[in-house]
């Protein structure tokens, strides 16, 4: 599965379009990480726990998108976009979407 945020893959032609595929996940932060983050809130700096949490969550959203594309029989997802929104206090939604295609 080729995943790219470009509209084409260099040197490959698009044989078939399958339309939009998407994946999302909503993650809440857990208390242990929040305590560390509370300290960082005084000192400033990177919240490493959150960085990892969000990277994992984004990976999960991507995996769901890929699963959808595989179910359609696609071999690539083009023009992938990510978006993040905070739904309620302490939780974030991570969303990935793109166009599933078959490349020659």
């Amino acid at each position: 599965m080729i995943i790219t945020n470009l509209e084409t893959v260099p040197g490959r032609r698009i044989a078939r379009h399958f339309g939009l595929v998407q994946g999302n996940t909503i993650r809440a932060k857990h208390v242990g990480r929040d305590i560390m983050a509370g300290l960082k809130n005084i000192f400033g700096g990177e919240l490493r726990g959150y960085t990892e949490l969000l990277a994992e969550a984004r990976q999960e959203a991507t995996d769901r998108m890929v699963a959808q594309a595989e179910a359609l029989g696609a071999n690539a997802i083009l023009n992938v976009r990510f978006s993040t929104s905070s739904v309620t206090q302490g939780a974030a939604e991570l969303y990935a979407y793109g166009t599933a295609v078959t490349l020659e």
Binding site: G11, F43, G45, E46, T51, T62
Partner: peptide, 28 residues
């Protein structure tokens, strides 16, 4: 740019990403 130059015809493409979460300190 979104269209790769034609000189890169025989190449593989894959998604790369980097993220970071930063917090504001008390003083700021």
């Amino acid at each position: 740019l979104r269209t790769p130059p034609s000189s890169l015809a025989r190449c593989d493409a894959s998604l790369v990403a980097g993220n970071v979460v930063v917090s504001v300190d008390y003083f700021k």
